[in-house]
Simulated assay, not measured.
Amino acid sequence: MNTSSPRAASPAFDSGHFRQALSQFATGVTVITTRLADGTFRGLTASSFNSVSLDPPLVLWSLKSQASSMPVFSGNSHYVINILAADQGHLAKLFSTRTEDPFGQVEFELSRTGHPVLKGCTAWFECHNRSRYPEGDHVIFVGEVEHCEFNPREPLVFHGGRLGGLHVPAA
Protein backbone atom coordinates (compact mmCIF):
# COMPACT_ATOMS: atom_id res chain seq x y z
CA MET A 1 0.00 0.00 0.00
CA ASN A 2 1.39 3.40 -0.99
CA THR A 3 0.93 5.85 1.89
CA SER A 4 2.77 8.77 0.33
CA SER A 5 0.97 12.04 -0.34
CA PRO A 6 0.61 13.13 -3.96
CA ARG A 7 2.33 16.44 -3.08
CA ALA A 8 4.58 17.68 -0.32
CA ALA A 9 3.04 19.89 2.34
CA SER A 10 3.89 23.60 2.17
CA PRO A 11 7.10 24.31 4.08
CA ALA A 12 6.71 25.63 7.62
CA PHE A 13 9.88 27.76 7.26
CA ASP A 14 11.35 30.47 5.05
CA SER A 15 14.27 30.12 2.64
CA GLY A 16 16.70 31.76 5.09
CA HIS A 17 15.93 29.15 7.74
CA PHE A 18 16.27 26.38 5.15
CA ARG A 19 19.65 27.75 4.03
CA GLN A 20 20.90 27.83 7.65
CA ALA A 21 19.77 24.25 8.21
CA LEU A 22 21.54 23.15 5.00
CA SER A 23 24.73 24.90 6.14
CA GLN A 24 25.03 22.37 8.95
CA PHE A 25 25.95 19.71 6.41
CA ALA A 26 29.67 19.87 5.59
CA THR A 27 30.36 19.55 1.89
CA GLY A 28 33.42 19.39 -0.27
CA VAL A 29 34.16 22.28 -2.58
CA THR A 30 34.69 22.00 -6.32
CA VAL A 31 35.47 24.23 -9.26
CA ILE A 32 33.74 23.11 -12.46
CA THR A 33 35.73 24.11 -15.55
CA THR A 34 35.13 23.94 -19.28
CA ARG A 35 36.40 25.32 -22.57
CA LEU A 36 34.18 27.04 -25.11
CA ALA A 37 34.39 26.48 -28.87
CA ASP A 38 36.30 29.77 -29.25
CA GLY A 39 38.96 28.55 -26.77
CA THR A 40 37.75 30.66 -23.83
CA PHE A 41 37.91 28.95 -20.43
CA ARG A 42 35.04 29.19 -17.95
CA GLY A 43 34.70 28.00 -14.39
CA LEU A 44 32.53 28.25 -11.30
CA THR A 45 32.60 27.16 -7.67
CA ALA A 46 30.09 24.49 -6.63
CA SER A 47 29.59 22.53 -3.43
CA SER A 48 26.73 20.46 -4.86
CA PHE A 49 28.75 17.46 -6.01
CA ASN A 50 28.03 13.77 -5.44
CA SER A 51 28.74 10.34 -6.85
CA VAL A 52 25.86 8.58 -8.60
CA SER A 53 27.09 5.26 -10.03
CA LEU A 54 30.22 3.14 -10.35
CA ASP A 55 29.05 1.31 -13.49
CA PRO A 56 28.82 3.41 -15.55
CA PRO A 57 30.92 5.96 -13.65
CA LEU A 58 28.54 8.89 -13.02
CA VAL A 59 28.71 12.00 -10.85
CA LEU A 60 26.37 14.95 -10.41
CA TRP A 61 26.43 18.62 -9.54
CA SER A 62 23.85 21.38 -9.74
CA LEU A 63 23.65 24.98 -10.94
CA LYS A 64 21.02 27.64 -10.31
CA SER A 65 18.69 27.81 -13.32
CA GLN A 66 19.13 31.57 -13.67
CA ALA A 67 22.95 31.47 -13.43
CA SER A 68 24.67 33.44 -16.18
CA SER A 69 26.89 30.41 -16.84
CA MET A 70 23.93 28.07 -17.47
CA PRO A 71 24.22 28.30 -21.30
CA VAL A 72 27.97 27.59 -21.06
CA PHE A 73 27.60 24.36 -19.10
CA SER A 74 24.34 23.11 -20.59
CA GLY A 75 25.66 23.61 -24.13
CA ASN A 76 29.14 22.09 -23.78
CA SER A 77 29.88 18.41 -24.31
CA HIS A 78 32.53 18.16 -21.53
CA TYR A 79 33.59 19.70 -18.26
CA VAL A 80 36.03 18.96 -15.44
CA ILE A 81 35.07 18.77 -11.77
CA ASN A 82 38.10 19.84 -9.71
CA ILE A 83 37.91 18.80 -6.02
CA LEU A 84 39.70 21.51 -4.05
CA ALA A 85 42.31 20.83 -1.38
CA ALA A 86 42.31 22.59 2.01
CA ASP A 87 44.90 25.15 0.89
CA GLN A 88 42.84 26.18 -2.16
CA GLY A 89 40.18 28.33 -0.50
CA HIS A 90 41.40 31.23 -2.63
CA LEU A 91 40.32 29.28 -5.75
CA ALA A 92 36.83 28.73 -4.33
CA LYS A 93 36.52 32.47 -3.76
CA LEU A 94 38.07 33.41 -7.11
CA PHE A 95 35.68 31.22 -9.13
CA SER A 96 32.64 32.29 -7.10
CA THR A 97 32.98 35.92 -8.19
CA ARG A 98 32.61 37.52 -11.60
CA THR A 99 36.32 38.00 -12.19
CA GLU A 100 37.23 38.92 -15.77
CA ASP A 101 39.63 36.00 -16.30
CA PRO A 102 40.27 33.83 -13.24
CA PHE A 103 42.35 31.48 -15.41
CA GLY A 104 44.98 34.18 -15.77
CA GLN A 105 45.47 33.95 -11.99
CA VAL A 106 45.73 30.17 -11.52
CA GLU A 107 47.91 27.28 -12.60
CA PHE A 108 46.22 24.63 -14.69
CA GLU A 109 46.83 21.96 -17.30
CA LEU A 110 44.56 20.78 -20.08
CA SER A 111 42.69 17.49 -19.94
CA ARG A 112 42.67 15.05 -22.84
CA THR A 113 39.69 16.91 -24.31
CA GLY A 114 41.28 20.34 -23.75
CA HIS A 115 39.46 21.43 -20.59
CA PRO A 116 41.20 23.12 -17.62
CA VAL A 117 42.38 20.92 -14.74
CA LEU A 118 43.42 23.07 -11.78
CA LYS A 119 46.82 22.21 -10.32
CA GLY A 120 47.03 21.02 -6.74
CA CYS A 121 43.51 19.63 -6.46
CA THR A 122 42.89 16.52 -4.43
CA ALA A 123 41.01 14.89 -7.34
CA TRP A 124 39.49 15.73 -10.70
CA PHE A 125 36.92 14.15 -12.99
CA GLU A 126 36.71 14.79 -16.72
CA CYS A 127 33.07 14.29 -17.66
CA HIS A 128 30.92 13.97 -20.72
CA ASN A 129 27.83 16.14 -20.17
CA ARG A 130 25.47 13.14 -20.14
CA SER A 131 22.16 14.62 -18.94
CA ARG A 132 20.47 17.52 -17.21
CA TYR A 133 17.36 17.58 -15.03
CA PRO A 134 15.55 20.79 -14.01
CA GLU A 135 14.45 20.56 -10.35
CA GLY A 136 13.19 23.51 -8.34
CA ASP A 137 15.40 26.54 -8.95
CA HIS A 138 18.39 24.45 -10.10
CA VAL A 139 19.44 22.14 -12.91
CA ILE A 140 21.10 18.86 -11.94
CA PHE A 141 23.97 17.92 -14.28
CA VAL A 142 24.92 14.25 -14.55
CA GLY A 143 28.39 13.67 -15.93
CA GLU A 144 29.77 10.40 -17.24
CA VAL A 145 33.37 10.25 -16.08
CA GLU A 146 35.81 9.57 -18.92
CA HIS A 147 38.99 10.16 -16.92
CA CYS A 148 39.87 10.89 -13.31
CA GLU A 149 42.95 11.32 -11.16
CA PHE A 150 43.55 11.89 -7.47
CA ASN A 151 46.24 13.17 -5.16
CA PRO A 152 45.21 12.35 -1.57
CA ARG A 153 45.35 15.64 0.30
CA GLU A 154 43.33 17.32 3.01
CA PRO A 155 40.06 18.47 1.36
CA LEU A 156 38.53 21.92 1.43
CA VAL A 157 35.12 21.83 3.13
CA PHE A 158 32.27 24.28 3.41
CA HIS A 159 30.32 24.28 6.68
CA GLY A 160 28.26 26.91 8.45
CA GLY A 161 28.99 29.46 5.74
CA ARG A 162 32.77 29.08 6.12
CA LEU A 163 35.56 27.39 4.16
CA GLY A 164 38.10 25.31 6.03
CA GLY A 165 40.14 22.16 6.15
CA LEU A 166 39.22 18.78 7.50
CA HIS A 167 42.05 16.72 8.93
CA VAL A 168 41.88 13.26 7.41
CA PRO A 169 44.23 10.76 9.08
CA ALA A 170 46.49 8.75 6.78
CA ALA A 171 45.23 5.26 5.97
Rank of each mutant, 00 (worst) to 15 (best):
T3N: 15
S4L: 15
A12Y: 00
F13C: 07
D14M: 07
S15V: 14
G16N: 13
H17L: 08
H17I: 01
Q20H: 14
L22Y: 02
S23E: 14
Q24T: 04
F25S: 00
V31D: 04
I32L: 10
F41A: 12
L44Y: 11
L44S: 06
L44W: 03
A46Q: 01
S48D: 09
S48H: 05
N50L: 10
S51T: 12
V52Q: 08
S53C: 14
L58T: 03
L60C: 13
L60N: 10
S62P: 04
K64S: 01
A67L: 01
S77Q: 12
I81G: 05
N82Y: 07
I83C: 13
L84Q: 13
L84N: 12
L84K: 10
A86S: 14
D87M: 03
D87T: 02
K93Q: 11
S96L: 08
E100L: 04
G104Y: 00
P116F: 11
V117I: 15
L118R: 05
E126L: 12
E126I: 02
C127E: 06
H128E: 14
N129E: 09
Y133Q: 09
V142I: 15
E144V: 03
V145K: 01
H147F: 10
C148F: 13
N151K: 05
P152N: 03
L156E: 06
L156W: 04
V157S: 07
G160Q: 13
G161C: 04
L163W: 07
G164R: 09
G165K: 10
G165H: 08
L166M: 15
A170V: 05
A171W: 14
A171T: 01
